[in-house]
Every structure is written in structure tokens, then in C-alpha cells.
Design a protein around this nucleic acid. Structure first.
Length: 594
RNA sequence: GGUCCCGUAGCUCAGUUGGAUAGAGCAACAGCCUUCUAAGCUGUGGGUCACACGUUCGAAUCGUGUCGGGAUCACCA
């Protein structure tokens, strides 16, 4: 239990025994004491004054005394300033935390929950390579999964691949028309980029055809419909749906190319999945659900045969769930897939990591599932994240302003190498070690940069800022870790720990660091509850910052006394463990040297 | 137009179940390497928390309104 919760409980107990009234944790606040005042934690008394009809001074004094008396091992003194009861936590407590937790690799992990959570993320299209937006999605999904694991949940990571539809056919048509049988192997191109290039070629050709038709006198609307290449694409989709062997064979081949490319990128960014769903297998799902919904009169049929649901009472619109030709639409497939996932895994919660442009869609999805009374309905949670924009505005594939994931990773690695070489601290590294280090630093910088922002908010990706290795960045934290390891390597033999004596109290910076470290489990829990890794990013940065201040002021190996040396060595190890653990929850590695 | 989200330092962001004098990083300026990694540390300057009104002991945080920005309201996925 964290010291904050200990104080909270002790306060509730004291209020009960002093005044015979029972309060809950929500009835008052406990904050960290502001640096300008004496104390570690502060109880804000204002909200308690009325129910107890007490003055701030009287209540503060009585509560302070009671806490001092009932919690001698935790509270060493108190002071009262205008309704703020500041408590000083005893060194004894901080020392005991340091001794018991500094090398405890379970520190920060929660008890097993017997609850299963599915996290769906990444969800790529097979007609173009992964880009910056996918990276935010992947990093978020991965990190949320790690955070839930640390909190004791059973996790299933899933991915739905959008591998069919008109957009895939566009790449296929363009390949047939322009490739002359070229393959990723024959051109030495990464498979997903190879296919993506044909998607671009389609759009170029289509645009040219439309322009030609308009020039010949067609209206723009007609031209867009009648362009031969578009008609061929639509025919191809029909062929695909009819199961035409030649079309299916090409589709399969091109998708394989894409998957090979994706796998390289996934490996590079450290993403993986326990279960991959393919839309080509799920796009027909949902028919049974439509039947059921019609029977229960949750859905209704229009004259043309299409099936709808009326959500106007819930403040939304009418929404189609089946076309007049009997095929499922997007939302129906999603309902079907949601149910299929549930039947397969019986998870208590199903988290979808999807951009905020789909907020409406996900609302509708959950609402329909609830109306149908499906067993998975209440577990659906949309982890909605904001778009990644560039300083120049939005990324637009048509204008070529999309930041490609592979290109970005290459560039980051190049910068990592350049900066490392400039500093020249690891000249004795073997080539493979260097390569590994550049990877660790560059992906650490990128992941931290994308995860440090509140997921809900759209963010601006500034290329120059993202490859900065100073200040509030991943490499700054990695550097702090490497620095600590350097000290720990100098210490041969086992850490004995300090012989505790009240004669040498903790110094300000020592206490600050231990206090911050003690808080780690609270943050891990909070990041889980709010599905927000940015809390973790902020916290770990704060730890690194606090450690560096301590490090600059106090020597470890040349400490004033042997006792202080032992104490600080334990602090170093504790800090390193918390940094490594927290970074791992964000999917970021830490180097032993850099 | 309806619904939802956002507006905090020059820039990028924290801080929002109401609490003490609103914090970081970047950028700018000034210091600190004969002692554990200077990818670091210390300090200075920089704010009408979009605006107005309200709720109360107390508002960046809650409510109402205004202004500004974005998303969405597809028989595309």
C-alpha cells in the first residue's frame, strides 16, 4: 500500500475515533506538499469543516495529534497552515521502502485480476505501407497491453487486417496494367511499399483518364464514373466476390507481399499480436444478427429491402445495417466480429484502439450491441486517439505529405548514430552492439515522443523536435539509466544496504527521490484506469530528472560515509529498476551504456 | 445546421474527482566538467490559463453563453 493510501486510511480511522463520524476517501483530499512548505503530504481540511462544525485550527490540531499518536512509524511531525495539515513522513518509512523494494521486480505490478481484456490495435490496410498515424496506434496499443498486464489482467492482443475491398483492387489493377510482372524481389522493393506504389500509380492513371474524358466533353461526375480503369476495378471486385480463381490468386500474392513488408516493420517497432483477423473472413458476418434484430423489432426493413436501426431517440441518426442486396455494411461486420471475438475469448473487456474520427461509429457499435443485448456489449471500450499532424498541417496521401513509418525509423536511426559518434563514448563497441544501440535510442525517442502526449488529444509531430535527444525525451531517460548502470558496475560485491541509524537523516534530494520512487505503483494503476500511457511517460521523466539533480549534488561512490554510500547505491538500483520497468511498459528498451 | 472534442509561456505539452505563489521541455541568456557518463546540472527572463458571467471560503479545473480550431453526421472500410 502506498503511503498516500496509508495516510488516507489513517485519517479516516482518526476522524472516526475522534468524532464518531465515518468518512470515505472522497470526502477529503491528500496532496503532495508544495515545496515551499515543510512536509511530505498534506491533508486539505476545508471539506471536513462543515460536517464536523470545526474551525480549521481546531480540526488540524486534533487530527494532527491523533495521526502522530496512531501512526508513529509513518508520521514523524505535522504543521498547520490555514486549513492545510502538512505531515512529515518519517525517514524510517522511506528507508524501509528503499530496503524492501529496491530490487523487487514485482514493484509496481498489481495483483492478478482474473479478468481478460482484448486489445485490438494497428488495423492496417493492405494497399499501403504503415505511416506515422499507425505508429501512434501501435505504440498506444502495445503500451496499454503492457500496462494492463502489469495490473494483473489477462491480455489478448488482436489485429483486424483490412485486406479486401475496392482499394485493394486498385493496386491489383494497376499492377496488372503497369508492372510487366515485376515483383518486390525483382525490383528489390519492400513488399508493402511495392504494392503501395501501385496504389499511387492507379490514382495517377485514374486522374489522367478523368481529365482526358472531361477534355473530350464529359462532365466531371460522369468521367469519374466512366473512367475505364475505375470500371475495371469495380469489375475486379465483383470477380473477387464471385471467387474467380485468377483474381483470388493475384489478390493472395499481392497481400503476401504486403504482409512480408508489414512483418519487417512490426518486428522493427516491436509490435505483435496473439490473434489476427482478416476482413476477407469477416466481411460476411452479421447476417444472423440482422435476422435476430428484425425478429426483436430492434431493426426495421425499408421498402427497398435494406435494413435499418433508428437511433434518433439516443440522439443519433437512422443507421443502415444491411444493404438492399443483402450484404453487410461496415457496422454489421463489426458487430459480427465483436461477437465472434467474444465467443472465442470470453473477454470481460474489449478495447479498440482507433482514431477519434470513428467516435460516432464506435458509439453506434456499442449502442446497437446493447440494444441487441449481446453479451459483449458492455465490455466494448473505444480508446480514441487524436490525429497526428505535421507543423505544416494534416498529412495527406494525395499531396505526398504522409510520413512513412520505415523512412522515419531510418532517419531516426541515422540521427542516433550521428549523435552517438559525435559524443564518442562507446568507441569500444562492436558493430552489432552499435547497431543495437542506435535502434534502442531511435525507437526509444520516437515511442516516447508519441506516447508522452494524452492519447485523446491530436498532436503535432515536429520532425526536428522528435529527433531531439535532450530534455523531455526517451534518450534523456535512457541516458539516466546508463549513467546509473555505470555506477553500479563500479560496485563489486553484494550491496549490503545501510545500517539504519537515526543519527544520519535523509538529505532533501535523497528523500525526494525515494518519495518519487515509492509513488510508482500508483502511477501504473492510474495509467491502467485511464488507459493513458502518458502518465507513465511523465512520471518516468520526473524520476530521471529527480535522479539527475540528486546525482549532480551528491556523490555515490565517494559518499561522506560508508553508510551513505550503501544507501545511495540502493537508491541507484531502485531508480534503475523503476526506470527500466516503466520504460518497458511503454515498449522502450534501456541501454547499459550509451 | 445537429452531435462530440479542443483552446494554458514564442513553440510542443503537463496540471482538470475545485485547494496554498499555474509547471516542464524546446528556443533565448548567464554559470558548472583535474571527482561516479555534460545526451547532464544550476540560475534568469517569459502567463489576462481564448473571452464574459455565474456557483463558493476558494475556479485553469464545475455551469451557462460568446468567439476561435478540429472531428463526425456514407448503402467506403
Amino acid at each position: 500500500m502506498s503511503i498516500q493510501k496509508i495516510i488516507q486510511q489513517a485519517t479516516i480511522d482518526c476522524l472516526e475515533s475522534l468524532y464518531g463520524k465515518s468518512f470515505t476517501a472522497k470526502d477529503f483530499q491528500i496532496n503532495k506538499t508544495k515545496p515551499e512548505f515543510t512536509g511530505d503530504y498534506t491533508i486539505v481540511l476545508f471539506s471536513l469543516l462543515k460536517p464536523l462544525s470545526k474551525s480549521p485550527d481546531a480540526l488540524g490540531k486534533e487530527l494532527g495529534e491523533a495521526l502522530l499518536k496512531s501512526q508513529p512509524e509513518f508520521v514523524s511531525s505535522y504543521n498547520l497552515i490555514k486549513g492545510f495539515l502538512n505531515l512529515v513522513v518519517s525517514d524510517n518509512y522511506w528507508n524501509s521502502i528503499l530496503l524492501s523494494k529496491n530490487n523487487d521486480h514485482c514493484f509496481g505490478t498489481g495483483a492478478k485480476k482474473e479478468r481478460r481484456v482484448m486489445i485490438e490495435y494497428s488495423s492496417p490496410n493492405t494497399n499501403k505501407p504503415l505511416h506515422l498515424g499507425h505508429l501512434r496506434n501501435n505504440f498506444l496499443g502495445w503500451s496499454i497491453a503492457e500496462i494492463f498486464k502489469a495490473n494483473g489482467y489477462d491480455i489478448v492482443k488482436s489485429c483486424i487486417v483490412n485486406d479486401r475491398g475496392i482499394h485493394i483492387c486498385k493496386s491489383m489493377i494497376a499492377w496488372k496494367l503497369f508492372a510487366n510482372g515485376a515483383t518486390p524481389q525483382s525490383t528489390g522493393t519492400k513488399g508493402d511499399h511495392f504494392v503501395g506504389d501501385y496504389y499511387v500509380k492507379f490514382n495517377d492513371a485514374y486522374k489522367a483518364e478523368v481529365e482526358r474524358l472531361v477534355h473530350e466533353g464529359c462532365s466531371k461526375e460522369v468521367a469519374e464514373k466512366e473512367a475505364p480503369i475505375m470500371k475495371a476495378t469495380q469489375q475486379m471486385l465483383l470477380n473477387w466476390e464471385a471467387g474467380d480463381p485468377e483474381t483470388l490468386a493475384l489478390w493472395k500474392t499481392m497481400n503476401e507481399w504486403v504482409y512480408e513488408g508489414f512483418n519487417v516493420t512490426y518486428k522493427r517497432i516491436g509490435s505483435d499480436f496473439d490473434k489476427t483477423y482478416y476482413e476477407s473472413n469477416t466481411y460476411l458476418l452479421g447476417k444472423e444478427i440482422v435476422h435476430k434484430g428484425l425478429d426483436k423489432q430492434i431493426f426495421f426493413r425499408k421498402e427497398d429491402g435494406s435494413v435499418w436501426i433508428d437511433l434518433t431517440e439516443d440522439g443519433l441518426d437512422e443507421k443502415i445495417v444491411q444493404r438492399k442486396d443483402g450484404t453487410s455494411v461496415y457496422i454489421t461486420q463489426d458487430i459480427g466480429l465483436a461477437l465472434q471475438k467474444y465467443e472465442e475469448y470470453q473477454m470481460d473487456q474489449s478495447i479498440y484502439v482507433i482514431g477519434d474520427e470513428q467516435n460516432y461509429h464506435m458509439n453506434v457499435l456499442q449502442l446497437i450491441c446493447k440494444k441487441l443485448n449481446l453479451p459483449n456489449a458492455n465490455g466494448i471500450y473505444h480508446l480514441s486517439y487524436g490525429m497526428v499532424e505535421l507543423p505544416t498541417g494534416k498529412m495527406k496521401s494525395r499531396e505526398g505529405t504522409v510520413v512513412d513509418a520505415d523512412d522515419l525509423l531510418d532517419e531516426m536511426e541515422r540521427v542516433a548514430q550521428q549523435k552517438t559518434e559525435e559524443l564518442g563514448k562507446v568507441n569500444d563497441f562492436q558493430p552489432e552492439e552499435l547497431k543495437e544501440l542506435y535502434k534502442t535510442l531511435s525507437s526509444g525517442a520516437l515511442k516516447f515522443y508519441l506516447l508522452r502526449v494524452d492519447p485523446k488529444k491530436k498532436m503535432i509531430f515536429n520532425p526536428e523536435e522528435s529527433i531531439d535527444f535532450h530534455g523531455y525525451t526517451g534518450p534523456f531517460i535512457q541516458y539516466t539509466y546508463a549513467r546509473i548502470q555505470s555506477i553500479l558496475r563500479k560496485q563489486s560485491g553484494i550491496l549490503t544496504g545501510p545500517v539504519l541509524s537515526s543519527a544520519t537523516p535523509l538529505l532533501k534530494l535523497e528523500k525526494e527521490l525515494i518519495m518519487a520512487l515509492e509513488h510508482y505503483p500508483v502511477v501504473v494503476e492510474q495509467a491502467c484506469q485511464e488507459l493513458d500511457p502518458s502518465h507513465l511517460a511523465n512520471y518516468i521523466y520526473h524520476i530521471a530528472k529527480t535522479y539527475n539533480s540528486f546525482y549532480a549534488e551528491h556523490s555515490v561512490m565517494n559518499a561522506e560515509t560508508e553508510e551513505k554510500k550503501q544507501l545511495r547505491l540502493l537508491m541507484c538500483r531502485f531508480t534503475a529498476n523503476v526506470i527500466a520497468s516503466g520504460m518497458k511498459l511503454m515498449g522502450i528498451k534501456v541501454p547499459e551504456r550509451m
